[in-house]
Computed example of a mutant assay.
Amino acid sequence: MPKGFVPQSGKSINKQGLAGSLFGSPIMLFFLLLLLGANFYLAREIADCKGRPRGLVCGLSFVAPFVVPLVFVMMPMTAGKAAIVGPRSRVAEAAEKAKTRSMETAAKPAPAARKPNPKPPPEAQPEAQSQPEQPVVNGYYHRSQVKFNRNFFVTELMRFSRAVPVGEWMVVRTIAGEEMWAARVTAVNEEGVAFSVAAGEIWADKALAYHQINEIFIQPMEG
């Protein structure tokens, strides 16, 4: 065995105590300081809540951590200590101001209502003179402008030669002042023309010579 070698199983081995193992480790020392700080913080808050001196509560808490704060929590609040009044809310202050203003406004007498000035009666406007509606005319032919013959009815008014009415009236006025409402042209020759004329509730054929026609109006049947 080498000189100066001491086996671990020997009686002369140095045994480390509990306090040395706690304070010898940096991690354990950190946790102890953390618990001590929490103890003092709790003691200060309880002292403020119960109205006790901070120095007294914190000093006793150093002797008996976490026990003294628990004892002071169970103790009643000291007489003569007013409860801590929190800061007033801005909303509450604004509500009080609005209430005060409304009370002042209600106390003031309301101004007398002004009577509305009577408006002068509107001047009577002359009624617009109703003008008779003019009939809608799609075409107009006069003997002084147009020569009524077979060629005119075959070319200019060819649409009236259909078997079905075209939806227009051919109003024919003669030199004698007779007026006929025709829907179709039934026959055309060199001497005259024949129309299908409305006679009451029936249709009748009416023949005229070209020299008897004075003027012709073309207008819609709806008109």
Rank of each mutant, 00 (worst) to 15 (best):
162 R>E: 15
189 N>K: 11
45 E>P: 00
123 E>W: 06
62 F>H: 06
23 F>T: 06
137 V>P: 07
131 Q>E: 15
135 P>H: 13
16 Q>S: 07
124 A>F: 13
128 A>Y: 09
172 V>R: 04
102 S>R: 15
107 A>M: 10
160 F>L: 11
214 N>D: 07
59 G>R: 04
138 N>R: 14
93 E>L: 14
29 L>W: 02
206 K>M: 10
199 A>E: 02
93 E>S: 09
34 L>W: 02
160 F>H: 06
75 M>C: 08
175 I>T: 09
41 Y>N: 04
182 A>W: 00
195 F>N: 00
126 P>G: 13
195 F>S: 03
191 E>C: 08
40 F>H: 05
153 F>T: 10
101 R>N: 12
10 G>E: 06
34 L>N: 02
123 E>R: 14
85 V>E: 10
41 Y>G: 01
13 I>H: 03
29 L>S: 07
159 R>F: 06
101 R>D: 10
104 E>W: 04
58 C>T: 12
128 A>H: 13
113 A>P: 02
6 V>I: 13
130 S>K: 14
196 S>Q: 10
96 E>F: 08
80 G>C: 06
98 A>P: 03
96 E>G: 05
25 S>E: 01
161 S>M: 15
215 E>I: 03
161 S>R: 15
80 G>H: 07
207 A>P: 01
88 R>A: 08
92 A>C: 08
67 V>Y: 00
145 Q>H: 11
119 K>C: 04
72 F>T: 01
143 R>D: 05
217 F>W: 12
152 F>V: 12
210 Y>W: 09
5 F>E: 07
211 H>D: 10
219 Q>G: 04
107 A>V: 06
98 A>Y: 11
164 V>C: 10
223 G>V: 11
74 M>Y: 05
204 A>D: 00
30 F>K: 05
32 L>E: 01
28 M>S: 02
208 L>Q: 04
189 N>D: 15
112 A>N: 08
130 S>D: 12
120 P>V: 11
155 T>M: 12
133 E>C: 12
168 E>S: 06
216 I>A: 02
145 Q>S: 13
131 Q>D: 11
163 A>S: 15
57 V>R: 00
3 K>W: 02
111 P>E: 08
9 S>T: 02
149 N>F: 09
22 L>Y: 02
120 P>G: 05
135 P>M: 15
203 W>I: 06
165 P>W: 03
179 E>C: 09
92 A>D: 12
90 R>S: 12
87 P>W: 05
3 K>D: 11
27 I>P: 01
220 P>K: 05
100 T>A: 15
82 A>N: 09
74 M>H: 08
71 V>P: 02
136 V>C: 13
47 A>V: 03
36 L>C: 04
123 E>L: 14
103 M>H: 09
9 S>E: 06
123 E>V: 14
14 N>S: 10
178 E>N: 13
187 A>W: 11
153 F>L: 14
202 I>Y: 00
92 A>I: 14
123 E>Q: 14
159 R>N: 08
165 P>D: 09
174 T>P: 00
121 P>R: 13
155 T>E: 14
144 S>N: 12
